[in-house]
Amino acid sequence: MILVQEADFDTQQQYQALQQDCPQIGAIVTFVGLMRDFNEGDQVSSLFLEHYPGMTEKVLEDIRQQAMQRWQLNQIRIVHRVGELAPSDQIVFVGVSSAHRGDAFAACEFVMDFLKTQAPFWKREQTPEGSRWVEARQSDDKAADRWNDESK
């Protein structure tokens, strides 16, 4: 399940959807990304998230399918917000259910690493000096790259 939306999301509702009365599930891992009020040493008062409608959903679905093939999973849910956000707002939710925790942990991190480097979202942040586009981080590329190094 993939959702790209302006509205906030309810983590409890997402958790329940992952659990779904399914007795084969032994582990649920969830990740929530929040908006920080600082970046590169500056105060950030708000954030605008732009995306490429259509392509965003395709890329997220592709990442989801890759993870489903790579690990033994029951379900993956991805919710990503767009538009205007304030500090402490929830930005992204990734939830994975599986029979075992190892697969759930790995798949959740895999989805986030690829979401950060491949999904067409861009952040523009408001600082006391004005608004600026957030620069991509090399550390995010490295985090995604390590999944290619590891044997399946």
Partner: peptide
């Protein structure tokens, strides 16, 4: 560069009816 909403290499051929997008490195999540 993306062609038909998929990131492509720069030597990808174009026929002239595609949707082509250019964008900077992504910063979501």
């Amino acid at each position: 560069a993306a062609v038909e909403q998929k990131v492509v290499d720069w030597d990808t051929p174009l026929e002239g009816h595609e949707e082509v997008a250019f964008f900077p490195p992504v910063t979501g999540g």
